[in-house]
Write a protein that binds this DNA or RNA. Sequence first.
RNA 1: GUCCCGGUAGCUCAGUUGGAUAGAGCAGCAGAUUUCUAAUCUGCAGGUCGGUGGUUCGAUCCCACCCCGGGACGCCA
Length: 625
Amino acid sequence: MSQNHARTSRTNDLASRIDAGFRTAIAAALSDYASVNSAPIDPLIKAAANPKFGDFQANFAMSLAKSLGKNPREVAQQVVDAAPPSLRDLCEPFEIAGPGFVNIRLRPESIANALTAMDSATLGVSNDNKTHTVAVDLCGVNVAKQMHVGHLRATIIGDTIARLFERLGWNVHRQNHLGDWGLPIAMTLAALRRAKVDIARVTLDDLNRAYRRAQAEGRDDEAGLAAAHATAVGPHRIAELEAQHEGAAAALADAHDTLRRLQSGDAAVVADWQKLIDVTMHEVYETAQLLGVDLKPEHNRGESFFRDRLTPTVDAFVAANLAVRDAGALVVRFEGRERPLLIQKSDGTSLYATTDLAAARYRIQDLGSELVVYCVDARQRDHFNDVFDAVALIGWTKRADGREASLVHVPFGAVLGSDKRPLKTRSGENFTLKALLDEAIARGRREVHARAASPDAPTAALSPAELDAIGQAVGIAAIKYADLSSDVSRDYVFDLDRMVSFEGDTGPYAQYAHARIAGILAKASAQGAAAGALVIATPQERSLALNLLRYPGAIEDAASQLAPNRIAAFIFELANTFNAFYQACPVLRGADESTRASRLHLCDLTRRVLADALSIMAITAPSRM
RNA sequence: GUCCCGGUAGCUCAGUUGGAUAGAGCAGCAGAUUUCUAAUCUGCAGGUCGGUGGUUCGAUCCCACCCCGGGACGCCA
């Protein structure tokens, strides 16, 4: 995947100030030479590969020296000598090492000052004040179908990306592309109406069964019939299959008729269809709430929303000479690609690509998005590749203000069982999301209750209901963190034992670090101890402070790369460095007053950054656990 | 057959426009605890970065070919 999908205004953090300082130094040092290159030279500032090399390193000298035909260490020295005071004041004297690396070590005062500057409501994260707009396609449930693990990913990855941009001050449009139109819905609807079921009173589970039954009924058993003839089974069996075939044909005809009435606005059918959606969405919203996901009716932009835009979409491609007839269907062809994009079936009706094209146009030209993010299963990679190319071909990536929007698919991998096959129940069915979450919550509660049983546990005095609430937060965090903490495009094996573990790179580990800090802060508050001026003295304080300072950059990187795992990696690093600090640096006992005040300040900042980062993934951070 | 995605420690995975000795977690081993919550911390051990060539001062990263695994391929979404 290509890198920067979103341009965010870069924070004025330490790394940026070092970067700016070196740019100035390079320009000054190089003014001696005839301009080698008109482009500004990137000082290539990185976090140091190893603590013994300092905090940051600048890697510009090697490649630059080559183009100048000079010795890299000399070039590095010349640049270092030209460092402006703004840069020199920040750092200890520079060291030139190896082939020409510049090692940069921050002065403790610089760290304390930068951290003090970061201590605000924004925590140093930039805010674009709604000058950018993004649309995020998420969730994408199908009406009358139970949510399964695939929807878990489309929902929480989408929600995290949406929250990430909200945190950066973007205008965010959540788009729930419901499967609420077309033949599958009509089949279920027809079956329910035939059975005279009161649709408003059924559960999603009932609907799910009706959906599957309708699918099975509607399956045209031509293949079975042909096989029966070929393998010479008895006439009785063939008659049975023929009857089934006729039944299927009748069900299908009924479904088509229902679809026609739905599409032409038949009031009774439309009313039942709406009930079907209501029942489905009621449970979807419940699940979303359980997951902490911001998903509401106003985010619905399902297939039905685009129904009147389908014909104009097809017409536009025909008018632009971008679609051609092929075997009765309309296809868009691409240069250098065998695979075409079907935008109209030979019976004249449209299909999913048509809706996606209409939706892309809506998101860019009606909503004004400069970026449209699709959180959809990786198996639809080719499909979106084609759709995006088609949108570009017809020029719909151009926004009202003339700027180009980009469309990006964030493909996510499958959730696998321990057999490395897509997760299934014992009976071979897809796991419903609800079943999965119930199990995780039960596990979280078990862990929390077990620990509260110890008399000196901080949770010992809590009521069972309070412990249940914490346990639920732990269980949900376990699942969400596991899902979001590795590159989302990859498959992962669902292993509840690992996820719910309080050790290692897990949600509960992060929550635990937060609870530990909250415990100290509560105690400090009870003792009347207050945070004060920061003093960075020990290696653990330094490490914690530097990690805190990385927060704004981590958030910006996560956004520009649409990579939730970057947030998780930051959280894990921070929780780790905090725990090391906790071990080595007593806050409330055995420390003089100024040390205590400084460490309390570090604790307070760490807690807020941790809670803020977790909130972007919509993971709750309990104060006790 | 065409195209897409992946292959890094026993297992699960990071690796941010090519940079110093490839990093974590789990599992294993050795330590630390009358705890500001040990759900923790410190240390040890663990690698032909799928393979072979190429580009480069320098490659897990870029290019070519090959091997293995997964996926998608016109009227489902």
